[in-house]
Design a binder for these strands. Structure first.
Lengths: 208, 208, 208, 208
DNA sequence: GATGAATGAGCGTTCATTCAT
DNA sequence: GATGAATGAACGCTCATTCAT
């Protein structure tokens, strides 16, 4: 059995407190973005909801933009975690099966905190520090590219770079539109139909 | 019989003045959106750039949102005019040729004032009056759907509604990403390659 | 039978038109004051409701204040007409009867367009041209004073000037408060009780 | 037992700062009302005169109306303090003496910052939050009523409620008009005459 | 005279950010 | 470090008034 230290070193305690404050601020920002929208999300309100003074907010974040950037960062990490979790085994699947799986993953990824996702997609001005908020980050391209490379012989496409761009962009757009703009479509069967159709698009493209 | 005056009624003069003011305001809004971004586009600045007083601005537009909405409206009209101009004859083309043409049109459409297009896509908060602003309006679905219907026998898809959604969304996303986010790609040959690849995606999907 | 002129002189016609415009503007001002309150009563809105251009408004009235002043003037004329109409014979009445009649008149006067009366009393800033808006104009003092003088022997007061001030002020205040602030009191019997009590106040004062 | 620190808690300092700011704002509002009138009293001007930023103003007051309401509140408190200070012993006085005292009190009350009193009476639109602002608050009715009840047998009036209304309204109106509109009357002797006459009005009414 | 488009000072208000405590 | 009162530039918007037509 591991011996537990009776007292924790002070530094750690304060570090933990810092982390907790930072967490609280990011969480508060996310909640306010969802509740009030970007334009009404003020630093004072965020600090208040986080149970922290505005002064402290500025101790940890240089400004509003950073706060929002951190929310985006965290959201993308969560999405990528979901993606990575689901990705196991895909590399070994044949194209048809793999693509179906990938589309399903994309849908699932869009359903991680969809309200926040929507605000981030629709209300955040892609300007300054926030410019980097790509719809689907570059890791996806890399992952998909890797798959294509290891299945190159089954494919009817020449330029894998281009093909990755085409596939990832299409899947992302279909999923995004479906989830955000056609929420009525979200009956399970409609969603399945769409998933299937998206997969068909990509499969036919890749296999010629 | 009453003799009709040869000259036009007087009122036209002042109507023209109004029209000019409205035009100037919309144009100024567009220019400021491009130059300064949405967040820095204030009614006072817009009025100033339009060479008009704020008061006049509010005589014609109930607020900033309306102004931006008018800019979007105008931009979409211009795009749709481009699309309609190019569309002649497409209905009678075979699928391969038609799709190539359509993708080319989409690219061309995205090159109508691409800086403005980018701001509209990236910085306009989809909130309030601006909520219903679609990147690609529904007319496109309708046009594409019409094509699919009249070529139904050549196609390997069942649900034309769904197929329209899939195709239009994909083409739009590819074009959008290509034109806006990968400006390096904009060498003519790269663009041609992309156009070709987008067309291939859709053609293979439709023809099975 | 009086011979009617076949055509009216042009001057009269235009004078009538002017009068009609002025009337319309005053009426519109009164209606807007009642409907929207003083602060929201703008010259543009007044002109619009009057069916006249703002320009014309300024042809007849030098500014907003004048318009409001005209409304007050008109309202006071109407009140004084009511007062004068009812006043016949009061001069010859004995004090008790006369005072009762006068209080009744005051109540009646407060019921000429009570909504307008209320706005004028509560929302018009007594400043500039509008300063002269006395609650009850000086004609009342004069009329009452005249009565007191011609009944001097029946009275137990020395200074008739002072007595007029005391009586007119009291009656006016009682009536005003009753009509404006205690509108629930306006059941006929409550109002009668108040009238009677006001009369009693003044009668006892005057008769000692 | 925990030893109590001799010095006061630290927070008092900042609380005092807040209090000072609030005080300064109310005082500045009062001064601007007197100096410039209600219509020219803008939040920016008030803040400036208070030596405080507009932001601070809005930290403590939700808007201009609240500021004015606070001024009215404070003014009424001062008046009521004056009234209460003078009221000692009145309850035990006989009617004649009591009424004379009460009228004198009313006059004195109207001389607490009469310029401010005038602005509040003449320029404040009785609208919104300011609607319920009475010139003379209901405490006066209560106080007077209490006196009447404890001297009921000396009185020639039936309905004490009604009598209170009649007396308080009359005294208030006489005092108000005398102090505010007939400033010439303010020679000491004229004022005394008026006080006496007001007292006479009420005494005769109450004693029959 | 009549029109109504145009004006622009000025209003009430918000909010990212600072800094004395 | 933490606090929160204070800041003030800047915003969206109104409206009495003017003046070219």
């Amino acid at each position: 059995m591991v011996r537990r230290p009776i007292i924790k070193p002070r530094k750690v305690a304060s570090q933990e407190r810092s982390r907790a404050t930072v967490e609280a601020l990011i969480e508060a920002t996310a909640r306010i973005l969802v509740r009030d929208g970007f334009e009404r999300a003020s630093t004072n309100r965020i600090a208040e909801l986080a149970g922290v003074s505005v002064g402290s907010l500025y101790q940890y974040f240089p400004g509003k933009e950073s706060l929002v950037a951190a929310v985006i960062e965290r959201h993308q990490q969560e999405i990528m975690q979901t993606v990575r979790d689901e990705l196991a085994g895909v590399l070994d699947m044949p194209v048809e099966q793999a693509v179906r799986k990938l589309v399903a993953i994309a849908v699932k990824a869009h359903r991680v905190d969809p309200k926040l996702h929507r605000v981030l997609a629709e209300q955040i001005p892609r300007v300054g520090k926030l410019e980097k908020v790509a719809s689907f980050n570059s890791e996806n391209y890399a992952l998909f590219r890797t798959y294509l490379e290891s299945h190159r012989d089954e494919l009817a496409v020449d330029d894998l770079e281009l093909a990755s761009f085409v596939c990832v962009t299409s899947i992302e757009a279909l999923t995004h539109n479906a989830v955000l703009h056609h929420s009525r479509m979200l009956s399970d069967e409609a969603m399945e139909a769409l998933t299937e159709e998206g997969a068909r698009l990509v499969i036919r493209y890749l296999k010629g």
